[in-house]
Design a protein around this nucleic acid. Structure first.
Length: 585
RNA sequence: GCGCCCGUAGCUCAGGCGGAUAGAGCAUCGGCCUUCUAAGCCGAGGGUCGCAGGUUCGAGUCCUGCCGGGCGCGCCA
């Protein structure tokens, strides 16, 4: 609808020709938006106001000329000049009838477009370290990333979803050692658990798994382990302590033995994360391993590429990247004094690899605490000759859990944090997804468990689902009265729908493609949530105002055609959000 | 100290590219079930858009400075 009007307006401007303007109008200057007030018609444009200065003409007079140049169109009943120079468009009933017919014809595909056709996009999200279960913050990133990817797919982009697995590096070693120590406890060894180790019941569960799966072949006496280790914190240096502990594990188990412990731990943790996300309705096309990236030599290649352009230098024994030259606030270490590559090194290699895989647009969904990252990764890409703008980072703000008005404290290491799994078990997947997406991703989220759980009118989840179920209920009622829906007759009589409630539903339901478009382009899934609530609201009002199943067959079928269209749009929208669309409640 | 995000109704929040009288949910108050599910609908009250300047036909929206809150500023990931 909107795009058709834009074309119409553009052709009017073209028809008026260069004579009317200092320069020919470009398509970007054509913008049409929904009106807020029905008195202003269905759509309005401020084009005349914007072009008035360049054309050196009075805005109202210019608007009048544009209206006069508009080619006649069956969708437009009339266009008139209003206010300071707005042009208001009043659509015909036919325009809405066409749109309802389109919804019926396209079904689950309704709302899709080809705006992003040809654009290959990689959406990387969650990517939580596999050293513990996902927490509620990851859940929000999962919901956001999955829906964003779905929206981009809906506007025609070729989208792939990716989880980057940080399975290399020190944190992973610490995790493996933590599992090993718990395993030794199961073998009846008595040891002090390191301050920096991973606590939490899940570590012990994995230790148990290790024991059942691999037997006691990793059993070493406690005395051999603690012998001559530097003291742990707080008295000693907890970092040195844990590093020594990792080294000791490698000595005692052998490199292969330690790697086996790590492998089992990683597989168990990753399995848990994957199933957690799967149950949450979040699937990935790729699980990219940092270790595999390193083994493939990608990091060396990335560093070589930086080196060849003279963007690396040595200082105090470390190898540095001149990030400052590419917009970052300081230079960054890529290889430490001890010869180990930094996380940043693998990260830029990873992003280079994404480009090499042919993605034009790299979207990273990250927790808000990672914002310091953006400039340096972009600097890395630029320095390697890739366009910095190809990287787009969407930061997702934190989640605070409330039980009513009481805030739930969330400490990370203490094992006291609430996991995504716990949250899902308590409030259900649907409420989780919707609550996560209700607010702008760049806004802190207060998540009230009581509200999300309540089966009452306070809970926005049911409001939308209920509208969908109600339509199903109407159709069941229709069948039980021995009637059936005649689609052809209904679509042929949309003009009979002219009450205020009906006009509002027609207008809302036809807005869906525009909502998908703006939500995708602005990366704002919450726009879709707000829209679905408004559509449900229009429907519920209609339901209360009018009886659908009436004796008059053309009117009955027209009304049913409309509410079935509403149901289809609700279903399509909820599917994008990952929320169920129940037939009954 | 520097950088990023945020500040809109009692509470939680919407308000692409600057546009017409700033919206919604919850809460409060008052109505609607002999009629397709009341998990619903209708109505009312409620605002110095943090503060102060600036840009212009027009600013919640853009710019500058303050105030308040969150986060980040490692040879950690």
């Amino acid at each position: 609808m909107k795009s058709q009007l834009e074309e119409l307006l553009l052709s009017a401007l073209t028809r008026m020709g260069d004579g009317a303007f200092a320069s020919a109008p470009r398509p970007q200057t054509v913008s049409i938006e929904r009106t807020r007030d029905a008195q202003h018609g269905d759509f309005a444009t401020n084009i005349a106001l914007r072009l008035a200065k360049a054309a050196r003409r009075n805005p109202r007079e210019l608007a009048q000329a544009i209206v006069a140049a508009l080619p006649p169109n069956p969708l437009v009943a009339r266009a008139e000049v209003a206010g300071a120079g707005f042009i208001n468009f009043f659509l015909t009933k036919r325009a809405y009838a066409d749109e309802i017919a389109r919804i019926h014809a396209e079904g689950v595909r309704y709302g899709r477009s080809t705006l992003g056709a040809g654009m290959r996009v990689l959406v990387e999200f969650v990517s939580a370290n596999p050293t513990g279960p996902l927490h509620v913050g990851h859940g929000r990133q999962a919901a956001y990333g999955a829906t964003l990817a779905g929206l981009l797919d809906a506007v025609g982009c070729s989208v792939e979803r990716e989880y980057y697995v940080n399975d290399a590096g020190r944190q992973m070693d610490i995790f493996a050692v933590s599992v090993w120590l718990r395993y030794l406890e199961l073998c009846s060894e008595e040891l002090a658990f390191p301050t920096n180790g991973y606590r939490g019941d899940y570590v012990q569960a994995i230790a148990q798994l290790l024991l059942t799966q691999e037997g006691t072949r990793f059993h070493k006496p406690a005395a051999a382990i603690v012998a001559q280790l530097p003291p742990d914190g707080p008295a000693g240096d907890k970092e040195k302590h844990i590093d020594a502990l990792i080294e000791r594990a490698r000595e005692l188990l052998g490199r292969d033995g330690f790697r086996d412990v790590l492998k089992v731990s990683l597989a168990a943790m990753l399995g848990d994360i994957r199933s957690d996300l799967g149950e949450f309705g979040v699937e990935f096309d790729h699980w990219t391993s940092e270790r595999a990236l390193e083994d493939s030599g990608a990091i060396e290649r990335a560093l070589a590429r930086l080196e060849s352009e003279g963007n690396l230098y040595r200082e105090e024994g470390a190898l540095w990247f001149r990030a400052e030259n590419f917009g970052d606030e300081k230079n960054r270490v890529v290889v430490r004094e001890n010869g180990q590559k930094t996380y940043f090194a693998s990260d830029i290699a990873y992003h280079l690899q994404k480009r090499e895989r042919g993605f034009q647009r790299l979207i990273d969904v990250l927790g808000a605490d990672h914002h310091g990252y953006v400039a340096r990764v972009r600097a890395g890409l630029t320095a390697m000759g890739e366009p910095g703008e190809s990287l787009e980072v969407n930061l997702v703000q934190f989640v605070s859990l409330y039980r009513g008005t009481e805030k739930i404290p969330m400490g990370k290491r203490e094992g006291q944090f609430v996991t995504l799994r716990q949250l899902r078990a308590e409030v259900g997947n649907d409420a989780c997804r919707l609550f996560y997406l209700m607010r702008s991703h760049e806004q802190h989220l207060d998540f009230d468990l009581e509200l999300a759980k309540s089966r009452s009118n306070e809970n926005p989840v049911y409001y939308i689902q209920y509208a969908h179920a109600r339509v199903a209920s109407v159709l069941a009622q229709l069948a039980s009265r021995g009637m059936h829906f005649d689609r052809a007759e209904g679509l042929a009589h949309i003009e009979l729908l002219k009450s205020a409630a009906e006009e509002l539903v027609l207008q809302q339901v036809a807005r869906y493609p525009e909502v998908i478009e703006t939500s995708a382009l602005n990366r704002t899934p919450h726009g879709l949530v707000h829209y679905l609530r408004e559509l449900a609201n229009a429907f519920h009002s209609y339901y209360n105002a009018e009886q659908f199943i009436v004796a008059d067959a053309p009117l009955r079928n027209a009304r049913l055609a409309l509410v079935i269209a509403v149901q289809q749009v609700l279903r399509n929208g909820l599917a994008l959000l990952g929320v169920a669309a129940p037939e009954s409640m």
